[in-house]
Each structure stands twice: as C-alpha cells, then as structure tokens.
Write a protein that binds this DNA or RNA. Structure first.
Lengths: 211, 211
DNA sequence: TTCAATAAGTGCAACAGCTCAACTTTTGAA
DNA sequence: TTCAAAAGTTGAGCTGTTGCACTTATTGAA
C-alpha cells in the first residue's frame, strides 16, 4: 500500500505511545529514506535507481538503509501488518449470510490493485509503478502469501473446521493467488470474479460435510 | 527434474537429428557445467557454492556459464519443456470419464516432489536439496507457473470453454499452485488431495453451464 | 580447397544488491 | 554523571550478473 505523501514528513504513527526522541528520530530516518526512494522511483523507474543513490539522497549510508529495509523492494511497500489486519477483518466481519469466499473476493476487488482509478492520482501512479515492475509485482505477491497461515486460521475459526484442515489452507492460498492469476487477462476484474466463483462453489460443497 | 547421472557424461539427446560437431560440443560443455554444479551443490549446499567456483570446476569462464544458463537456479533444473509436455499430456490423455481437476491432481501427486522416496536415492537427495533451499523452491514454483497459459489453453480445448475463459486460467493457476499451498502441511499429500477436491467441486459446478 | 560468416568461448572489468566488522555518537535511565 | 545499548557510519568486500573486445573453431558455400 502506498504511503500518503511523497514530501518529507515526520508522520506521527497511529500507535498512541508517545515515543521518545530516539524512536522519533529513527522513524524520521526511515521516512526520509522511503520518501527519497519513492520519489526517485517515480521519477525514473525502479530499476533505474540504485541503492547507493537512494542512500545519498536520504543522506545516510547504504548500511543504514538496509537496517531499515531488508531488501530493495521493501522500500516501496510499507504497512504490511496493517494489510494483514484488514484482510482478516474482511473475513471476520463480513455481512451476515455472506460466504467466506465471497468476502475474500470483495476484499480482493476493493484492495489489491483492482481498485478503479478513483481520484487519488498519487495512488494511481504508485499502482502503475508496481504493475510495470516485475520485481515489485513478485514481491507484492510474496507479501500477500506470507499471510496465508493467518488467513487459513481465520477461515478455520469462522467455518468451524479444524485449524489445520488442508481445505482452509487451500482456500487461503488460492484466494491470495487469485489476483495474480487474473493479472494477464484483458479484464482482470472479471477474471478475479470468475476465479472466486470457482473457489466459492468448491468451498460451499466441501465446508459443510454435515449438510 | 533431476538429471540422471552426476558423472560427466556426453549424453546423447533424444532428438534423432544427428547434430554436428559444433552442437555436440556445445551440449557437452553445458552438461559439464550442470554436472559440476550439481555435484558441488549436493556436496556443500546451494548457497555455499559460488558461480565462479562452478565455472572453475567445469573449466569454463563465468561468461560462458551464463551463456548456457540464464541464472544460477537454472543450473539445477533442466528439461523444462519436457515437463510442460507431460503436464499437458496428463490433461489431454486422461482416462475416460476422469475430470480435468482429477487428472491434474494425479499428475501433481505422481510428479512434483510428492513422489514417495521410491528407490532412486539420487532423486531423493536432489529433491531434498530443492526442498531445503528457498531460492530453489521459489524458482521451481515460477517454472511451473510459466506453464499456466499453455495449461489454460489445454483445459479450454478439453472442456469446450472459450480459450480465454478466466475459469480456465484460474483452474490452471490454482492447480499449479496447489503443491506449494500444501508444502508446509504435516501431510502434504493429503493437503494436495484436499486442495484439488476444492477445485474439482468448483469446476464441476461451473464448467457445464448447459447442465 | 578456400574463405567469409557465424557461433562458442575467453578474460576482464564493472555494476548492483547486500553483508560484515569495527568504530563513533546519541540516548535513556541508574 | 556514568554507562551500556541502540543507531548510525565507514569502508571494504562478496556474489550474481552483464558488457565489451577479442580469439578460436565450425560450417556452408564458392
């Protein structure tokens, strides 16, 4: 998910704990690096900007940069844990009567890159950057897949199946893969919908063995 | 898929065309590189062996090595096109009355890493190498995913759906992802079976709109 | 047989991403 | 005030990978 601004800001973080000077400085450094990186990436393209250059622009050493971001791709994606929360919430707090796959479909359509370009140009440009850069696409995909386990657990709880039922893992994994499967289609949105149809029918047939 | 021998061999290739000296030498060089690489990898682990060392062992320059194999991971996996053929054949030549997902499940169970350690220790050791090395796991996965398009087309032909029906893409993609979804389970075999159950029910419900 | 075109291979330098070890500064608290 | 941990720096260096200029070997045709 994109960061809200590109300008150098010392954004307060949503945690209410009043962090000390130390933490604030650390956050500021991190932010400066991320801002510099995003600006350069948008200007010239991801592959055209090197780590050393970003470090220079943020006025830190490359070593420091890598202490804040484990790999180059991570400079682009922040807030991974927030995403996981939203994903799980989409399942847990879905409307009455909505199936789990249906909730996941909705979440996929509104969140992940499927969002129609509504207003926010910054977001649109950011999205385009990711879409155009294979390394970033791959990384984004892996990011989502990292949440498979948590999602599978949530699915198990919601459905009453055993926590380690392979069916839950399979649904979780496939649901997170769906946008990628749809990526190369003429109409990705439609492709996502159909992919979830597949999952929904299968799930409904299998998740209530009692019926 | 593993290569049959580790010893340096100038294996004849199954193509009947009597290749000239040039092509033969090229193939021999390639084989020497791959053999050296595999031997070293098995001895000391993938990450512990560098490109320069492999090139030395095969007595070629690193430049030459990269002319034969585009990336380090490719040193381990050969015969990618053969795999694709077998995958497509599994769908096209499935027994009468067997559904497409069922055929894919069977193929997944008998081929990819699911094979019980039956006899061939070389294969077992090779499989273990891949399983233990994240970079190789990822690469193997990408390899399979590269066949999504071809598989989707085969599925479309066999089912009578439109060639670009998203349902075919989705099934193809999910079927190729299934082993990975199952990877971390206590009983991966069982997990693969259940994952394909999900796909099979969904597919059967959706692939015959006329019924 | 000769010869030019082509492909394979070489050597080396360089770049990009990333890590390591040793060292300095800042900071929070005792 | 003191002191250990955390944050940051420096600089060297490793690894995968590429570009470039160059040498050979093989081949198909003249």
């Amino acid at each position: 998910m994109p960061r809200p601004t590109t300008g150098t800001t010392t954004d307060s973080i949503s945690t209410s704990a009043p962090m000390g000077r130390r933490e604030r400085k650390k956050a500021a450094t991190r932010q400066a690096i991320a801002d510099a990186a995003l600006r350069l990436f948008l200007e010239r393209g991801y592959d055209e900007v090197g780590i050393r250059e970003i470090a220079d622009a943020a006025d830190v050493s490359t070593t420091t940069l890598f202490k804040h971001f484990p790999v180059k791709e991570a400079l682009v994606f922040d807030e991974e844990s927030d995403q996981e929360s939203r994903l799980l919430a989409a399942v847990r707090e879905r409307p009455e009567g909505q199936s789990i796959p249906a909730a996941l479909r909705e979440h996929a359509l509104t969140t992940r890159r499927m969002a129609a370009t509504d207003g926010d140009t910054t977001l649109a440009v950011f999205t385009e950057l990711v879409a155009r850069t294979p390394a970033l696409r791959d990384y984004a995909q892996k990011m989502w897949l990292r949440h498979t386990t948590a999602l599978a657990r949530a699915i198990a709880e919601e459905s009453g199946l055993a926590a380690d039922d392979p069916l839950c893992t399979a649904l979780a994994h496939f649901a997170l893969e769906a946008p990628r499967a749809a990526y190369s289609h003429a109409d990705p949105r439609e492709a996502v919908i159909r992919a979830f149809d597949l999952l929904e029918y299968g799930w409904n047939a299998l998740s209530r063995p009692a019926l």
